[in-house]
């Protein structure tokens, strides 16, 4: 890496602390120390396609985070894994070869598997053979939170994020049984060993997890706190992921939802998933 990420994040958080929020990304670029150029930081735009509202940084007062995924754009880049790589790198999600013990925060699944109720034999060819990008839906009515016997997984009151306390998780895996989306992964073994085996550097800014706890996407809570977009949104070069506050009628996600036909996974279950898909 050409610049010191640790220092960058620290600078960013200090800037955020100082209340310098808008437009933070540009500013952060300037703050990056050691004379590294601002170009090292990809310019993040969580924009609405063909729309005016394209803020440079996530709002600081969101009350219900949500994401719109444009599968049409996604389909144009079939083999693209940039968002997944960015997420898994940022959060030290190990790369596990054994499919039974894979760790997935954000991953691609065959369209028919992801949207079973929308699947039929005569589906548009390019949709039928496409993949959908999946992650934790951060449900408004999360079954994983209801079943957790220790409140290790909980819904954050202020912004609706479904969070995990990895210090508290006892590894009973009841949440895995309760999640209708397969969004949760269990650490069957010591995750650090995969980094050593594969020679992948551990990101010092984010903890790894320990053996025997469950983990999942956090909507990059730690980045939002610093005024940064989620890593996947930030990384997507095609603007296929749009993130924002569902409670704000002027937010790009609301703008997109108003303009496009969108679907959610298994809406009939009443979990109120907060990831919306443009198909």
């Amino acid at each position: 890496m050409s610049f010191d990420r640790r220092k960058f994040v620290k600078a960013a958080s200090i800037a955020a602390l100082g209340g310098v929020v808008s437009p933070p990304l540009k500013l952060f670029g300037g703050v990056v120390v050691d004379g590294q150029s601002a170009e090292a930081v990809p310019e993040a735009v969580s924009g609405c396609i063909g729309c005016e509202c394209s803020p440079v940084a996530p709002p600081t007062n969101a009350t219900r985070w949500a994401m719109v995924i444009d599968l049409k754009t996604c389909r144009e880049h079939e083999d693209c894994t940039i968002c997944m790589d960015a997420c898994h790198k940022t959060h030290n999600v190990p790369d596990v070869d054994n499919p039974k013990e894979q760790m997935k925060w954000i991953w691609k699944e065959h369209f028919g598997h992801a949207f079973h109720e929308a699947d039929h034999p005569y589906l548009e060819e390019h949709v039928k053979h496409s993949n959908a990008l999946l992650m934790c839906n951060h449900c408004n009515n999360p079954p994983c939170v209801s079943v957790c016997p220790t409140n290790a997984t909980f819904k954050r009151e202020k912004d609706g994020l479904v969070m995990m306390d990895w210090h508290r998780c006892i590894g009973c895996r009841y949440c895995i049984a309760a999640c209708p989306y397969g969004s949760r992964s269990f650490n069957y073994t010591e995750p650090k060993k995969y980094f050593a085996e594969k020679g992948i550097q551990i990101e010092p800014d984010f903890p790894t997890r320990t053996r025997g706890v469950v983990e999942k996407c956090t909507f990059c809570e730690e980045r939002l706190a610093r005024g940064l977009w989620p890593a996947c949104v930030d990384a997507c070069p095609h603007n296929a992921l749009v993130f924002g506050d569902l409670d704000n009628p002027d937010d790009p996600v609301r703008c997109l939802l108003a303009k496009h036909f969108t679907i959610r996974r298994k809406p009939a279950l009443g979990t109120e998933p907060e990831i919306y898909y443009i198909v």
């Binding site: 030290n92 050593a196 984010f206 790894t208």
Partner: peptide
């Protein structure tokens, strides 16, 4: 330190 990353550890691994 089962989870939280030690800067030195990272350097060593590096």
């Amino acid at each position: 330190w089962d989870c939280h990353v030690l800067p030195a550890e990272v350097q060593q691994a590096d």
